[in-house]
Amino acid sequence: MNRSFSIPQPLEESIAAALAQYKLTLNDSKVLAKHVLALSDFFISKPDGQTPWNETFAQVAYLVYYLPLNSARLRAVITEGAKRGFFDGLEEVIDFGAGLATASLTLAENQNFNYSLIERSSEPQKLIENFFPNFKAKQWSRAYGKEHSANPKKTLALFSYSLTELTDLPEWAYQCEAIMIAEPSTQQDGRKLLQLRQKLIDKGYYAWAPCTHQSACPLLTQSKHDWCHDRIHFEAPVWFQKMEEQLPMKNRTLTTSYLLMRKTKPAEIKAARIVGDPLKEKGKDRQMVCEGPEREFLAWMHKTGLQQEIPRGVLVKLPADLKKVANELRVQSPVEIYE
């Protein structure tokens, strides 16, 4: 099973149409790469600086590089939520720190909600309305930290790469029925999400994904270094690959740390999630798996002749004949992918 995500044709067409405003096409790989490098260099030199949305290089780099990559990450998170019915019954979305609304644009591909976007900078609103005229936001706001929903019981609070510099969610978010968070897959941001997960559970929320249980997170309670993050494969179109050939950054796989939480309890599933990449060791292969409060690894002993590589982030059904040795669940029969 290969968890792959590409750029949907409607999004690709919108990107091409927006580029035409700069007299560029998707085939201008060297020029596009030059703009991407300029924005990358800006982030490196000014890590705490605000994105220069008024600059052409930032606008083009967003369109051809950051939007496709972040949208693929978010599409994976949204797909996991949709499988479990996470978005059922919701009507409103509040996108906090929306930037150029990548999260809302991606969610709107398959979810018909009313979108309210909160962003301190005024420039992103103009750009989104120009680049993506078919996306209609209910409202834009530059006010952070206030209540923004008339009916929080039907509202999703959406945070995409906007919590990195915050110590906590804004207070109004805790009134919302659902919370979706996607952040960089760094150790610092990942472990911050583990702590936030427990705080949300203490406030009456239930974990829908990536967790399959409501117990304490073993990566938080039994490790000082681990953090939870997902990995997907990015099926880049030819134009993206040609642009990427001019860049030092390669993106065959993408990672993100995420949480989907609701005040409504999810339907119980008898499944565990693979939360680690394959580890090749002497005499065995291992992958970290999460099904409860214990930090555990599935282990395929070479002497049994069994061998599997399960994509990180996939739900699996654990065989009944697993043999537990210390923190290993030794596989005696094939592990089944949960559909």
Rank of each mutant, 00 (worst) to 15 (best):
Ser185His: 04
Gln222Met: 03
His225Gly: 04
Ser160Ala: 14
Tyr161Ala: 11
Lys224Asp: 09
Glu177Tyr: 11
Pro170Ile: 11
Lys199Arg: 15
Tyr205Leu: 04
Ser185Tyr: 00
Asp189Tyr: 05
Cys211His: 13
Thr212His: 02
Lys199Ser: 12
Ala157Ser: 10
Lys203Ile: 10
Ala182Asn: 03
Pro184His: 01
Tyr205Arg: 07
Asp168Tyr: 06
Thr186Cys: 03
Ala157Ile: 07
Gln188His: 13
Leu158Gly: 10
Leu194Ser: 08
Gln222Leu: 05
Ser223Asp: 10
Arg197Lys: 14
Pro218Gly: 13
Ala173Ile: 04
Gly190Lys: 00
Ser160Met: 02
Gln195Tyr: 06
Ile201Pro: 06
Tyr174Leu: 04
Ile201Met: 13
Ile179Leu: 10
Met180Arg: 00
Gln187Arg: 07
Ala216Ile: 04
Leu200Phe: 04
Tyr205Val: 04
Ile201Asn: 09
Thr164Ile: 04
Ala216Pro: 00
Thr167His: 13
Arg197Trp: 12
Thr186Ser: 15
Tyr205Gln: 07
Leu156Gln: 00
Thr221Ala: 13
Arg191Met: 05
Lys199Met: 02
Trp172Pro: 03
Gln175Asp: 15
Lys192Tyr: 02
Leu219Val: 12
Pro218Gln: 14
Tyr161His: 15
Ala173Lys: 02
Ala178His: 12
Lys224Ile: 01
Tyr174Pro: 03
Ser223Gly: 09
